[in-house]
């Protein structure tokens, strides 16, 4: 039976293209988690509760979307959480130095961009594998944040700046709107434009991409830079939400961000994946976290489940792709 299905599918590539996709796993997981969380607590039937639960993860979600692009093109950026902290600290330092809010935001975004550019240059020019390099810059950026802020919380922002997560349009908090719009725009870019298509080509075979006239290094440089910029945005958003900037904020966030991308079915070796999957996986993480909180499982103990999910997600995605390939 299974064999017949697989033969039938291999004869109908378009059908197979739509059916054998790991993001369906994410969709199924999302449905399961919604149903089981509603069993757990009636809160989850309330959309507003879920929306509110989502706001703290929006910063991670934004980065997960960019990280999806990076992983599709065959690289990875693990310095993301450190860049959030560094840009937030730079933002706080700049604001407390009295240079005004607009300028502080510009400086934060600029510093994020520079961090990303630095990653990108080392990866493309020196050919250091990004997975190793960004382990190094992860330490470096966090270290710079610590040097700048020491153990202080940088606060003192005007009230209009604080609490972006408490501004709503209807029942939807503004950060969730930002995330959704960003996901749609990037998703559209990835699926429908030639630049998006080229990311898949680069991730599938960088050599062939180079010989086909695709500027592989330039694209990768751009992606890493973009990752830095988005981390800068996330840094400012986090500061607005928490009202302070600290060097140790978003510690360990790389786990959740990578988890969102992996749960969404993006292939760790590049060339496959999409934004839809990451978008769905974002909500899985939100509901899971909220569910675990409602179930009164300690935040720290939740790490066990997230870590296990990351490993299972990768194994499952690899398995599905190995099936769909042959």
């Amino acid at each position: 039976m299974l064999k017949q299905i697989s033969i039938y599918l291999s004869e109908n590539p378009t059908l197979r293209y739509w059916i054998v996709r790991p993001e369906w796993v994410a969709v199924i997981l999302l449905i399961i988690s919604i149903i089981s969380s509603i069993q757990l607590s009636p809160f989850f039937a309330d959309l507003a509760f879920i929306m509110d639960s989502a706001t703290p993860y929006v910063e991670y979600g934004l980065i997960a979307i960019i990280l999806t692009l990076i992983i599709i093109s065959g690289e990875i950026d693990l310095s993301i959480a450190s860049m959030i902290a560094l840009t937030a600290v730079i933002f706080g330092t700049a604001y407390n130095a009295g240079i005004g809010m607009p300028m502080s935001i510009v400086i934060a975004l600029l510093s994020g961009t520079l961090c990303g550019l630095f990653n990108g240059i080392l990866v493309t020019k020196l050919q250091i594998p990004s997975i190793i390099l960004t382990i190094g810059t992860l330490t470096l950026y966090r270290g710079i944040a610590q040097s700048l802020a020491s153990d202080f919380s940088l606060g003192g922002y005007p009230s209009w700046f604080i609490g972006i997560d408490y501004r709503y349009v209807g029942i939807v908090p503004i950060p969730v709107i930002i995330f959704t719009v960003f996901a749609i725009v990037v998703g559209f870019f990835l699926s429908s434009t030639i630049y998006g298509k080229q990311l898949y080509l680069i991730g599938t075979n960088p050599q062939t991409a180079k010989y086909s006239g695709i500027k592989v290094d330039r694209v990768k440089l751009l992606l890493f830079t973009l990752s830095g910029l988005v981390c800068g945005i996330a840094g400012v958003l986090t500061t607005s939400r928490l009202a302070v900037a600290r060097f140790n904020m978003a510690t360990g966030a790389e786990l959740e961000i990578v988890l969102m991308v992996m749960l969404g079915g993006t292939y760790i070796f590049g060339g496959r994946g999409n934004i839809f999957g990451t978008f769905i996986a974002f909500w899985i993480v939100v509901i899971l976290r909220a569910g675990l909180n409602v179930a009164r499982i300690k935040i720290e103990s939740q790490l066990t489940i997230l870590g296990a999910m990351l490993i299972i997600a990768i194994i499952l995605t690899n398995y599905i792709y190995s099936k769909s390939q042959k």
Partner: peptide
């Protein structure tokens, strides 16, 4: 294989 094709990509792409 190394420089000519994008293996797991559709023919038309």
């Amino acid at each position: 294989k190394q420089m000519g094709i994008f293996g797991s990509v559709a023919v038309e792409d």
